[in-house]
Design a binder for these strands. Structure first.
Lengths: 218, 218
DNA sequence: AAATAAAATTAGCCAAGACTAATTTTATTT
DNA sequence: AAATAAAATTAGTCTTGGCTAATTTTATTT
């Protein structure tokens, strides 16, 4: 059984691995968790001893099959609770992440599976991320962002890469949800700002960072 | 905001206060939590500093109004989650206590109220304990036990005083639930064992300890 | 290649919350 | 009342999981 901290590190490593596919360094983990690199080095030792990760200076940190399994189940619990909070308790998009962050650590052998069943076996969470099944398999994960769309192109919002309440509240304000149609009217060469039209309405300008945080289907 | 440990101590003190109206000593708390009395003395100091309890050698530990409020809200969350686990996720009577023990510590300002609404504002939890409302008020708590019934008397099970899985599984085996009718046929003078008839069926003998753990309405 | 910057690591410290062992205080017996 | 037992308290230790500061290793510039 893993401690709360161990679970948070596993989840963090899993996310970094999914996000970039790049080398996962102690500094990257430290930045992601807001911890000191020295603390990360300690935890890398603990997780290595538990055979949940392998650390190689050249390759960085990698999850072992056991570590991947544990991390996947944490993510499964997180995303299922997010669905519950939004659909059953009526929370808003931007409120659920932090609460799910706590709920995901509840330990019980059958809880996730019962919750999954109760929710009707959802494939995606409210942010558009696929929910891993009990066996670790999950639906397709989208990777194209609004910033990848060609000028003039149309797309549909399928997920968000950033789940901070700042971003989600901004989306709310712009009237953007999962499923919203967006046309990319123009890319400003100077700073890669994007001029877009949301659901065919009046045009708005958003930043490159914004565009890279919104996952879309063409 | 209270830590996990602080919350567990508050809940423990609350339970001891409800159970017996007796003096709450460090040893009693230690026994109840399975901790060392020395640890309890430390925590008494912490909670006193936070003005959640008052400790007087003569009177023992008492909750302040602030401490009572915090404790009541923890109990509220615990009992609401128990209802959720049983009614929505299909857990059995004896499985829900330990999971609720973890869920009760999830911190969010509106979670308990949303859950309460989602569950239809239940008055009692699956063990028959009244669920405190957001304002701290709650329905009547039963205090008469099967051991208090006179020989020949009839009664109806309304709650359990003991929520260990050992007891609850034993009840299950005997076919006793909330609402079950019991007749007390005889009290054995030797050891206060009770000869009972469950729902008018064949008679069984149970211990004094058993009788004192079952709350009834005459 | 040498100099510099960045990243990783080590060493030592801290707080929370548990523990044991020893001591003091309070209660109970004889 | 004195002796004994029980309860409370103090002092000091341990583990987890953070931290800072100093050092070593690795990368990047010049």
């Amino acid at each position: 059984m893993n401690t709360l901290s161990e679970e948070n590190y596993l989840k963090c490593i899993y996310r970094l691995w999914q996000d970039k596919g790049q080398k996962i360094t102690p500094t990257a983990i430290a930045d992601s968790l807001g911890n000191n690199p020295a603390s990360v080095v300690d935890m890398i030792r603990k997780l290595t001893d538990k055979q949940l990760i392998v650390y190689d200076k050249k390759k960085g940190v990698e999850l072992t099959p056991a570590g991947l399994k544990d991390a996947t189940l944490i993510v499964r619990r997180h995303r299922l609770w997010e669905v519950f909070l939004l659909e059953k308790l009526g929370y808003h998009w931007d409120e659920i992440h932090d609460i799910a962050e706590e709920l995901e650590h509840i330990k019980d052998a059958t809880l996730a599976d019962r919750l999954d069943k109760f929710l009707g076996f959802p494939e995606y969470d409210p942010h558009g991320d696929p929910i891993p099944k009990a066996n670790g398999k999950m639906a397709k994960r989208y990777s194209t962002t609004l910033a990848d769309v060609k000028a003039g192109g149309h797309c549909r919002v399928v997920a968000v890469k950033d789940t901070t309440s700042q971003f989600l509240q901004y989306l709310q304000k712009l009237g953007i949800n999962i499923g919203t149609r967006i046309q990319l009217l123009e890319k400003i060469a100077f700073d890669n700002s994007l001029v877009i039209s949301i659901n065919g309405e009046e045009q708005k300008t958003v930043s490159q960072k914004f565009g890279e945080s919104l996952l879309i289907d063409l």
